[in-house]
Design a protein around this nucleic acid. Structure first.
Length: 112
DNA sequence: TGGCTGACTTTCG
DNA sequence: ACGAAAGCCAGCC
């Protein structure tokens, strides 16, 4: 473990671990929470390395539309939807239902 | 140093 | 609702 290649990855993983079960957040939200550390793409890319970190629930991180854009990077890809459904999140056609209800914003929840 | 990449986001047609 | 393009910035040759 870790030798973090960069603090940026560590920050992304840290926020991801804070996501409660049955909740999801967006890449942009994490990027905004981290501030100037990177753009939304960086969060997604950082998640690419999350596969090596078992405590990082990458499946709880989706895009702004609540769409499971990153599911293709899972193994198997269907694991992302199955995990979300197992936590009580409804997913239809790779899209989260009631997204507003399950959305978890680090900017609000953590700074509140 | 410089150029390419990417699990995003927003805007235009 | 969908497709395409631009903006975005850290990491990797």
């Amino acid at each position: 473990m870790a030798k973090d290649h960069s603090n940026f990855f560590n920050d992304v993983y840290d926020v991801a671990r804070l996501i409660p079960e049955g909740r999801v957040t967006s890449y942009g939200a994490i990027a905004a929470y981290l501030g100037t550390k990177g753009s939304a793409r960086m969060v997604g890319w950082a998640m690419n390395g999350a596969g090596a970190y078992p405590d990082v629930p990458a499946h709880r991180v989706v895009n702004r539309q609540g769409l499971l854009t990153g599911k293709a990077h899972f193994n198997p890809p269907s694991a992302m939807q199955e995990r979300l459904e197992a936590e009580g999140v409804k997913v239809i056609k790779d899209k989260i239902q009631d997204f507003e209800q399950v959305y978890w914003d680090p900017m609000k929840e953590l700074e509140l």
